[in-house]
């Protein structure tokens, strides 16, 4: 199936850009007129992915985050990529309630929320090179 639209944006890893990223993603997906709760799920998942890139990928140092959204008739595919430190153990990172930064009062729910709120989640990471999170979401109820 051919995409009906595509967008790519990049921004620096400032925490204020978490809000920017989720607004941009939701605005882009809104053109497909999905139900409001599906749009809310996408906003939340994007926020989690971008926050992970800022806190864990770059550890609050400045770097570039790339977000790409590809819109199909029935779904959206969203990729959030950083070029930071990478994840040593992806399986461990995806464990509910696990956080490598308990001092920040992180809940350890980031990947769990992405998995639950989206229809699919894949995580690719190379130590010292960065992390790419790929998520898909159907835009209508099945």
């Amino acid at each position: 199936m051919q995409p009906v639209n595509r967008m790519r944006t990049e921004f620096i890893s400032k925490s204020v850009n978490e809000g920017f990223a989720r607004v941009v993603a939701a605005s882009f997906v809104a053109q497909a007129d999905p139900p409001i709760d599906i749009l809310a799920d996408i906003r939340t998942a994007v926020s989690e992915a971008v926050t992970n890139a800022i806190i864990h990928g770059y550890e609050d140092k400045e770097g570039i985050i790339v977000m790409e959204c590809v819109l199909y008739n029935d779904r959206v595919e969203i990729t959030v990529e950083d070029f930071g430190k990478g994840i040593e153990d992806i399986e461990k990172a995806r464990t509910p309630l696990y956080t490598s930064k308990p001092e920040l009062e992180r809940s350890g729910m980031g990947f769990t929320i992405m998995e639950t709120f989206m229809d699919s989640l894949t995580v690719e990471s190379v130590l010292g090179k960065g992390t790419k999170v790929h998520m898909t979401k159907q835009l209508e109820y099945r």
Binding site: E105, R106, S107, M109
Partner: peptide, 13 residues
């Protein structure tokens, strides 16, 4: 109007 897992962390703290 919006809350992600940072809100869960805030409440748990």
């Amino acid at each position: 109007t919006f809350m992600d897992s940072a809100g869960i962390g805030l409440i748990m703290g």
